[in-house]
Design a protein around this nucleic acid. Sequence first.
DNA 1: TCCTTAGTATACCGATCTGTATACTAAGGA
DNA 2: TCCTTAGTATACAGATCGGTATACTAAGGA
Lengths: 192, 192
Amino acid sequence: MARRNPEETRQRILQAATDLFYARGIRAVGVDAIAAEAGVTKRTMYKHFESKDALIVCYLEARDEPVLTGLINSIANAPGDIADRIASMFIALAKRAEGKSWQGCPFARAVSELRDADTGDVAKIAGDHKHTFEHWLEMHLAADSVESADLVARQVMVLLDGCITQLLIHRDSSYAYASAKAARCLIRARCP
Amino acid sequence: MARRNPEETRQRILQAATDLFYARGIRAVGVDAIAAEAGVTKRTMYKHFESKDALIVCYLEARDEPVLTGLINSIANAPGDIADRIASMFIALAKRAEGKSWQGCPFARAVSELRDADTGDVAKIAGDHKHTFEHWLEMHLAADSVESADLVARQVMVLLDGCITQLLIHRDSSYAYASAKAARCLIRARCP
DNA sequence: TCCTTAGTATACCGATCTGTATACTAAGGA
DNA sequence: TCCTTAGTATACAGATCGGTATACTAAGGA
């Protein structure tokens, strides 16, 4: 089976790492398991990624765009004003969290798990990801003439990650509905 | 050094496990490191705890009361009405999160980290802990005549864990201030 | 005095961890 | 034809993992 497209092989390895890291946790998954899942020898894996740490970084960097796209679509494709549309994001989240394969936010979980090692890189990737979405929210809130769009965007970020944590612990979608109501309230209300 | 108080030895082991699990993560810490930190041989450790899994469970169960006490005190000892006092909890959290030893919520991190193994036990302990505090909040909100105290308590829980996640990722206390304002708004506002 | 208790010291088990070494194969281009 | 490329197969190194076995010591109570 030689002479395959190298880029395609690289993607298969990255996909295997993504599936396993997300499902079981980063520290819980060994490189042997990743290579086996990708249908590739460990030697080939190390030709494409110099170490497990590098693979972890690539895994997180690769999640940035699809996760953002999913969140943004759940807002952009919803009806109503900006408050309704952001509330819809929480409802969409509740639906996804019902599936067994849903395991929360890969960025928050990576930061939770890797507390001493290369926390620097991981925290930066996670922080950039969260900041990107916060900025997107701020712009869209401002476009709908919401006052203090920066503060409200930040509060929605807090609600989002809090909602994810509650869903992961309780597996009870009513936390998403409470979060949706809170978001609507914070976006619409004129708070002192 | 024989003939020590067994209960005191057990506590020393549990304290070492607590320090290491919280600082570095549960999967990242080996039983050898815990025994060494406790100044005890591995053999002694296994006389007090039958396995690492049992030690993990004891670690989490032992965190329940002190964590709750800390949160409750940061509310009970603050001035103002219930909205002000709950807002103070977020400010106190921001202060604690400035310290390097602060690493977020031990329960949420344990659930994040242990996704396949004995997730059952761990998720139950974490869920009970969160529910206990949510119930405490609900009672105190109701005592101050806040409408929909159950909903508002749930929303404060979402804000709390979201705030912790943001603080852990960004290490930026302004997220706590935004959370405090959100909590005040949700407690005081009459939302549709 | 003797036995139980609580612990130490040390060594080991098999498994798994990240990572590397050696040797081979099949596809395609010059 | 021959060389480079992309990969396989297998084995192993050195460390660490959770957990156990053997043999010993020192403090107290009966």
